[in-house]
Amino acid sequence: MSLGDDGYGQDPGRPGGEYGEGADYDRHLTRTRLPEGDEGDPYGPNRRPRGGGRGRGGRGGGLSSRNLITVVGVVVLLIAAIAFANRGGGSSSDDSDSAGGKASAQPTAPTGVKPVTGKDGATGIASGFARTEQGAQSAASNYAVALGGDGMFKTDTRHAIVDSIHTPDAAPALQRDLDKAYSADFFKNVGLSADGSAPKGLTFVSRTVPVGTKATAYSDDEATVAVWCTGLVGLAGQGSTKPVTQTWFTMTQKLRWVGSDWKIASSDQKQGPAPVSGDVPAAGAEEITNAVNGYGGFTYAR
């Protein structure tokens, strides 16, 4: 039995690819499907056409360019970081109701569509997403990671990230808002130096991990995608007064198809839904530092 190079079932005659460069793909490729039980496999692939659901939801109301920047609460992890800096509490019970929506979740399953292989040259953020509902969800996941990363705490890298993943009419005003938000006072509250750097001997951590996505509106030109995320934020190292803590939030992005890719026209963020914390012992400062420096991130694809 032969399988495609990455398990997605590559078309015969399409050699190479991200995971099988130079492999010999010929007309003898076969596929084997395991038998299903009477009730089916609740975790099995939810087969969908290659089109990825194009056309669902119509054109959806259109995005007004004047509302693009409507408080792009896109200071993504900024909300979480502020809460971290102030060590504020709060209940997430109201937020948990909103995540459950009426739209049913779709499992992440092989669709026959290959993950993206392109990257933006200036930032390394994944690019070249499909013009499908799945492509929009993949774009939103990868953009959430970029906006919630430590690169946002440095002026040059922040500008590059914002310009790379936002529409041309949304980026300039957002840049100005973020430059004001990432101020010396804010850095001080988070435990950083005035320029956003970590104190000597400490490692600043700001990392976002998408847990799931949901498209609430989709057309070939516009899409709205909610990304449920968990994140890490804090200072790792001996003597840290701002230890690394976990956050939970949901980011909703309004995407627009620009040129040949999805770009963010506007976005907002709210806390939660957050699960009950487990009783896993907290790691020591050195272990957390080694983990942050030793484990890289992912390119997310539906």
Rank of each mutant, 00 (worst) to 15 (best):
L3Y: 03
D5P: 04
D5F: 04
D5V: 06
Y8W: 11
R14S: 06
G17M: 09
Y19G: 03
G22V: 07
G22T: 04
A23Y: 13
R27C: 09
T32I: 11
T32S: 05
G37P: 15
G40A: 10
G40L: 10
D41Y: 09
G44L: 06
G44Q: 06
N46H: 10
R47D: 06
R48N: 05
R54L: 14
R54V: 13
G58Q: 05
S64T: 04
S64A: 12
I69V: 13
I69C: 07
G73W: 02
V75C: 06
L77W: 02
L77H: 05
L78I: 03
A80R: 07
A80N: 09
G88F: 15
G89F: 15
S93L: 14
D95Q: 15
S96R: 14
S104G: 09
Q106M: 11
Q106K: 10
P107F: 04
P107W: 03
P107L: 13
T108E: 03
A109C: 08
V113D: 14
V113T: 12
K114R: 15
P115E: 10
P115R: 08
K119V: 15
D120Q: 14
T123R: 07
I125G: 00
G128Q: 09
T132W: 00
A139Y: 04
A139C: 08
S141C: 09
A144D: 01
V145Y: 00
V145K: 01
L147G: 03
G149H: 02
M152G: 05
F153A: 08
K154I: 02
D156S: 10
I161F: 01
I161S: 04
S164E: 09
D169C: 04
P172E: 12
D179A: 14
D179L: 03
K180T: 12
K180G: 08
F187L: 00
N189W: 01
N189C: 01
L192G: 08
A194W: 04
D195G: 08
D195Y: 09
G196S: 09
K200P: 03
V205Q: 03
S206V: 03
T213Y: 01
T213R: 02
T216P: 02
S219V: 01
E222M: 04
A223L: 07
C229H: 07
G231A: 14
L232W: 12
L232M: 11
L232Y: 15
V233W: 10
A236W: 04
A236Q: 05
G237D: 04
Q238F: 13
K242F: 08
T247I: 13
T247D: 06
W248V: 06
T250H: 02
M251C: 06
T252M: 08
T252L: 05
T252R: 13
Q253Y: 10
Q253L: 14
L255R: 00
R256G: 06
W262Q: 06
A265Y: 00
A265N: 07
S267R: 14
Q269E: 13
P273A: 10
A274E: 12
P275R: 01
V276G: 07
D279T: 15
A282Y: 05
A291I: 03
N293R: 12
G294A: 11
G294I: 02
G296M: 10
R302V: 13
